[in-house]
Design a protein around this nucleic acid. Sequence first.
DNA 1: CTGTTAGCGCGTTCAG
DNA 2: CTGAACGCGCTAACAG
Lengths: 343, 343
Amino acid sequence: MKGHQVTIKDIARALNISKSTVSRALTGHANVNEETRKKVLEMAISTDYQKNIIATNLIKGRSKTIGIIVPDFSSSFFPSIIVEVQQIAKQKDYLLLIMQSNESYETEVANAKLLLGHQVDGLLVSISQETLNFDHFKIFDRKNIPIVFFNRVCDEMMVPKVLVDDYEGAFSATEHLIKIGKKRIAHLAGPRSLSISKKRLNGYMDALKQDNYGVDEDLIIECDLSPDKVKIYINHLLKIKNPPDAIFCINDPSAIQAIQIIESMGLKIPEDIAVVGFSNDFASELIGLTTVAQPVKDIGCTAAQLLFDQIESDKKKAIIKQLKTNLIIRSSTVKSLNCNRVK
Amino acid sequence: MKGHQVTIKDIARALNISKSTVSRALTGHANVNEETRKKVLEMAISTDYQKNIIATNLIKGRSKTIGIIVPDFSSSFFPSIIVEVQQIAKQKDYLLLIMQSNESYETEVANAKLLLGHQVDGLLVSISQETLNFDHFKIFDRKNIPIVFFNRVCDEMMVPKVLVDDYEGAFSATEHLIKIGKKRIAHLAGPRSLSISKKRLNGYMDALKQDNYGVDEDLIIECDLSPDKVKIYINHLLKIKNPPDAIFCINDPSAIQAIQIIESMGLKIPEDIAVVGFSNDFASELIGLTTVAQPVKDIGCTAAQLLFDQIESDKKKAIIKQLKTNLIIRSSTVKSLNCNRVK
DNA sequence: CTGTTAGCGCGTTCAG
DNA sequence: CTGAACGCGCTAACAG
């Protein structure tokens, strides 16, 4: 089914005037006789004329769209960031093309290509857990299309990045577990490929070392972020000979899964096992999960701002913004705190 | 900062052949000398040539994009639907333009206009709670751009719609509350403007009547869907002279808020007050909220399918698909069921 | 197999 | 104040 759009040509023909006059009347930038302008405007309204932005963009060599590639929508984290980006894009009259990689490298590459073909004027990216090669993003750089990474960044590209202090966040989370008296603190780590995983792992290990806790390799499990795997690893952790009395999880969804499994085994949280997550997803407050909050709004705004700074100017500086995290203590580590749920 | 794209023209000039030959070599559809094809392909790769899809679309009179306008991302409901739509769009090589109305009529109109200007080939819509006038959608219809409504639909337009059996869902939720012995069942209703609100209200009322319960107008509160308002109304409900012993809420976010308020007042759920929601958001399982589940995947797929059916053919039939809901009973109505949370 | 031409809808010259 | 002409990047129809 093809939509038959009304064009400037149509209006010009109907009014028996030239296309350029119609164009001028419509944009309002140039000198046009008041009467003809009026006639054109009336005709435009009565025929539902809508300017074809695409045609304009073709001429101007831009698309007035920016793309964003995120791993998934399975928690509130990325949607929350997208909402912020969307708002800023809207102010600037830009459209946001949202793509999910589903944690797959191949999909991410395909997404990037598609966005390139659609001539996005800029790109925001949080990479998939599988991504090791960055050629699909380097193309943007070579074509002078601004790109900004957030959270899960590409270390080898010199472009703006928005990060949070993952190390500090993990450190304070682990320290908190030590303070409440936990002795065997496990870490459900993220895939080694992501630098955030490494930073969080380091924060965890350094906190342990600082307090003269030994780092027990058995208590560190590196896993990919698929729900099925998480379940398997948590189960494994609970069944080793010297099981942990606390688990610091790489993110909230896995922490929530951990809680479900632990409780289904009849163990008590936080007495038997305390759990800490990372991100402060919507659900975390509801179930009382202690977690390292990320400033979602700030991440989204900052990333979008950095992108538009580049789009609008010609500056090309590889600024790295590091935002603060904030440990939120709830009942998964300290009893009878923030218990907003059906008992 | 302007991205300088490599074009067919550039390759043609570099290889000293005609643009059409380059184009043919690139598309592969036509007869080209194997050697020249090879040369073109090599050049294309070495220069990062990327076809400008926009230019093609301009010629073909389409954009290979579809738009979707949803009220918000504040629960998992719309994001989940979007994920499904996205998948189908991807299969068809379409891009999805996602817009949020934020429950505002004005924003919705602006979004629709923007999508129109960007020449979307089709539109999926769940209307805002403020929307009473549908002119901004009727334009699409007049321009023969397919449009499909889902969940929150426009009654006065004869276009495909995807609905769930809101009436039945509300009926069974209320019936469930009656069965567990509740006597004064309140309903936090949605805005009257939305037909889903009316249907759910009717389901609630008919269930009461069927069991010879009177409908007490004091127990029915119509409210808009902003969190602040919900809080006020729940508080009000709990303080009337003859307070309810159960609340059926228009959606999960408001049910979750209700639970938080009820517990903060020291009342027990479900003994003192039982709570039922609508939609089965991600969070609902975690906090043990009894709720009427909507088949999110099915809604997304069906809506997308109906849209592409129209885009690809010329059929214009106003099919209305009604999908089944499913009451999920958890601990907010029946004690010690599905308690997946930190106790 | 290849090149030329026209045109998608619009903006932007340059002449009148 | 208005019109004609050209071009954005690409496809399609028509000649060679």
